[in-house]
Design a protein around this nucleic acid. Structure first.
Lengths: 151, 151
DNA sequence: CAATATTTGAGATCTAATCTCAAATATATA
DNA sequence: TATATATTTGAGATTAGATCTCAAATATTG
């Protein structure tokens, strides 16, 4: 039962904006719809380049600002796949998952593991921290890359 | 049974350097000893500032280069505590652990949870990835910060 | 419709990280 | 030991991502 429908995502976004006294401007619409349709993982510069390619004119500053709002609103999640760039993923229409990253080819495998999630909850509870988000990254070499090295 | 002794750490570092055909220069020594003695978590700019304060003269470029070697050698581990800076921790003398970060006060709680580690191994195995490193970050609000807000 | 508040965009600024290349050091070789 | 060779360093330039500034444009409110 996952919300994939664009219209209902837009409604959720508009509600969020309204609650904050913000308006649903054309720029915010462009960015939001683009992300809903096209993207799962991305970093901001990639996104800016893609928008530019499609002649969707939104300034760099507005993109950064809008991503901040989308993160606050819970549509985006920062994932720590790489250390010198903010990397996001759109989460409103996918189920929660973590990442395995191949350090050789950069490919990303998504996984979800309920037992792992349980442990994370347990750890947070044990330290009396009310959890807002979490991240798990596993880095390694994927099978394909291991096989290529052998050759 | 943890190696805390500076001398044996230095020996390990020198062995690593030797194997790679690199030399144990005064600059590398300064950085390494400083990290062994003073630091657990740090980012590179902080480290550069600290060295400068202590009048330990090593250029920025050399610090960045040396940290790269130390990471390769397994003395440092990148931890994803913050998205726009590389954050390291010195791991040669501590046991493996993960982090809970308070988003309000920035305090860091270290924890280790064998069951969680087990799940990570299991996931990597399932996807046939030979694991090189992993990271778990839990973000939230610590008890102290929650209590302060109430007031 | 006027007054007020919000948002945008262009470009400046900041910061982290990397690169460049000549000078300094270190190492190997004769 | 002298010479040749390779490595390392440091100062500063460069790059890249992110943020800031502020006037102009747009939206909202009374």
């Amino acid at each position: 039962m996952v919300t994939l429908d664009l219209q209902s995502l837009i409604i959720r976004f508009r509600e969020y904006l309204q609650n904050k006294g913000l308006s649903y401007t054309p720029q915010r619409r462009v960015i939001f719809e683009y992300l809903c349709k096209e993207r799962s993982h991305f970093n901001t510069e990639e996104l800016i380049a893609s928008l530019r390619e499609k002649r969707l004119k939104v300034s760099r500053a507005t993109v950064y600002r809008t991503l901040g709002h989308l993160e606050d609103a819970g549509f985006l999640r920062q994932v720590a796949l790489n250390s010198t760039q903010i990397h996001y993923e759109f989460i409103a229409n996918t189920k929660h998952h973590e990442h395995v990253v191949c350090e050789s080819c950069g490919s990303i495998i998504e996984f979800s593991d309920p037992q792992l999630e349980e442990r994370i909850e347990a750890v947070a509870a044990k330290h009396n921290v009310s959890i807002t988000r979490h991240n798990v990254q596993i880095f390694g070499i994927c099978r394909r890359c291991r096989e290529q090295v052998k050759t």
